[in-house]
Simulated scan of single mutants.
Amino acid sequence: MDASTHQFDFDKEVDRTKSHSDKWDKYKGQDILPMWVADSDFQSPPAVIEALQERVSHGVFGYTHASETLTDIFVKRMKTKYNWDIQPEWVVYLPGLVCGLNIAARALTDEGQTIVSPSPIYPPFISSAKFAERPLVKAPVKLAEGRWMPDLEEAEEQLSGKGGLLQMCNPLNPGGTVYTREELEATLAFAEKHDLFVCSDEIHCDLILDGEKQHIPFASISESAEQRSVTLMAPSKTFNIAGLGASIAIIPNAKLRQRFSKIKRGIVPGVNVLAFTAAKAAYQHGEAWLQEQLCYLAGHRDYLMQEINALPSMKLEHIEATYLAWIDCSDLPVDNPHRFFEKAGVGLSPGLDFGNRKFVRLNFGCTRKTLEEAVRRMKAAVSSLA
């Protein structure tokens, strides 16, 4: 995108240190750049900020519900962006995606049934099986032609034969893989063979960094996929409104939707009025902002890959989606890569939290200035080992 066409300033430095930010308060008072939890440092789209200001000026914040307009916007968005025809009644609003993972773990399995999860993976996948007290089978995520993919065949021999739930993450976090249609069809075949429902976390679906890649919702590939699935999406990562808490479960199967809603009832609160306001404005007016953000993040991704892969002891595979880099530190002569870089002034997510202590995850949803300083510190730390 030509610089003259830019409407939005993603290089703008916003001080988050006095905003009760989980991300920035973790290292409060320390010279450590926070590059860990998956929220970005970008101000949300102007339309979102304006809509929130207008709603706040109303001054009354009572109990609320989703507007038909928001649901209509979301239904149209699924058709326009992903060629997926969904019905309004399939939509279940949630105050966050993690509660959706946990509800699905309980609603889509019976006692003794298995939950299959990729590993390494976003930690709430693993904890949802633990909290639901279901046996967990890990499908190891392996490198296949430069892309991280779960090896379902390796998980197959550990299955109980009693059915259960397959958790998937598309795009993959960590790793950034965008599933192809063939890969989704193979995943469906595995689920059909072993009588598994599927919970598909697609929260990063709008953050595709490769222009030639296309997100395909798992449930959209066939009637069978649709009827056995719960799809989880949200505007939170896309438009940096995670702190407001607005997520969406899409459940075409009426019986599954009823079970999901029953587990949720009385325990999971509704979505708040400001979250609904932000979600509607983001989906309705945020597309131009999103496209510029994608260009900005793709530039970060390319820079990061060049710099990390120039180091002799670290490796970063191509990231197709997300602003999260899954960095292989296996050849780094340190016992704890996360602690090593933390001491060098860069606060990354420990790979152990995801399932592999020899990796770290770096959030590059930040300004170029911050990213370049983080890379400078990491390079200096690695050089000190020579």
Rank of each mutant, 00 (worst) to 15 (best):
Y122S: 13
F359E: 00
P46Y: 07
V230F: 05
H204T: 11
E153M: 09
S229P: 10
T231Y: 01
Y179M: 12
E212W: 08
G164F: 01
I32L: 12
F8W: 10
P333Q: 04
G211S: 09
S119E: 14
D11T: 13
S349E: 14
D9M: 08
I221M: 01
S261P: 03
M378W: 04
D15N: 15
K81T: 06
S21T: 07
R106I: 12
K142N: 12
V230H: 03
I248N: 00
G286K: 00
P252N: 04
K81H: 11
P140A: 03
S4G: 10
W289T: 01
S383V: 04
A47G: 11
R368D: 12
E307F: 01
F276R: 00
S383P: 00
E192S: 10
D31Q: 14
T64W: 09
Y296G: 04
D201R: 01
T322A: 11
L196N: 01
L136P: 11
T277G: 02
H6W: 14
L207D: 07
Y179F: 15
A381G: 08
A105H: 08
L33W: 07
P337H: 06
R361F: 00
R301L: 04
S224M: 03
A275C: 08
W84Y: 15
S21R: 02
R259T: 07
N356F: 02
E13A: 13
C99E: 14
Q214C: 06
C295N: 13
K79R: 14
T64C: 15
R301P: 05
E50N: 14
K12S: 11
K28Y: 12
A189W: 02
D110C: 12
F8L: 11
P95V: 00
V141G: 08
T64K: 03
I248M: 15
E373C: 01
R77V: 01
R357W: 03
G270I: 01
L188M: 07
R377N: 07
F260L: 11
G100C: 09
P45Q: 09
